[in-house]
Amino acid sequence: MWSSIALLAATKPIRITAMPDILHFEFMRNAFLAAILSSVACGIIGAYVVVRRLGFISGGIAHTAFGGIGLSYYLGLNPLAGIIPFSLAAAIGIGLLSRKARIAEDTAIGAFWAAGMSVGVILIGLTPGYAPNLFSYLFGNILTVPNSDLQLILLLDLLIIAVVWLFDKEFVAISFDEEYARISGLKTLALDLVMLCLIALTVVIMVRIVGIVMVIALLTIPAAIARSFSQSLYRMMATGILLAGLFSIAGLWLSWIFNLASGATIILVAALVFLVNALLRAGKARQTAC
């Protein structure tokens, strides 16, 4: 994992020499930094999301966070001040409802998803005047990441790495065989909630990059591609980080050249590679079948 982070850091100067005109601007430098930093969280947490099939729950957490954006607009705060508590509350709420209250998980997710969006819509409607940058929270705008947000992303990255490092064997256990984890004396519900909260924090990071609507794609696609090459969960995380970083940087570059929406371009690059990888694998499977 560490070596690939170092590798990612090392690719930066190469990019700088390859694209000096782009990186001449501070906002562009910030955009590349944001892309790289967010890939770290994305690759690590994406691995859990994919192996535990938490994609839908991640979508629920992200969309519930829209309520937080509405609240921040209404109160005139930094949107992150609303997104963080809302996504954490969604993670814990959906986790508790589906695991404790015998409510089907997709029902709990759907309820939070829609309720969060509704709260956001109503509060934004109540806020006088035009809501600036609303679009960028829905669909991401990596070109407007200020220094303060970069610091926050770095902080959240470090927090995620630390928690994953600490809960290493527990997370592997509940992901691979929850029943065995339980009889080994692990508090699986608590561990589950911790993992969901880490997803929530990753969502907070990703909202800046690709926006609420497209978070799921960047959480799942790099990790899903990585899984097919990886012997262990850690390798999968490392490969996921690398891929997420490549997709973000390539998408950012293409969006700059062709003057496209950055978040959407990043997602399309990821989806394209995913499709090609899937087709190649399908072709290989067919060859061996004949």
Partner: peptide, 10 residues
């Protein structure tokens, strides 16, 4: 993505 060894380590 988990090896037999890691499963046994559980």
């Amino acid at each position: 993505p988990i090896s037999a060894m890691e499963v046994v380590l559980m």
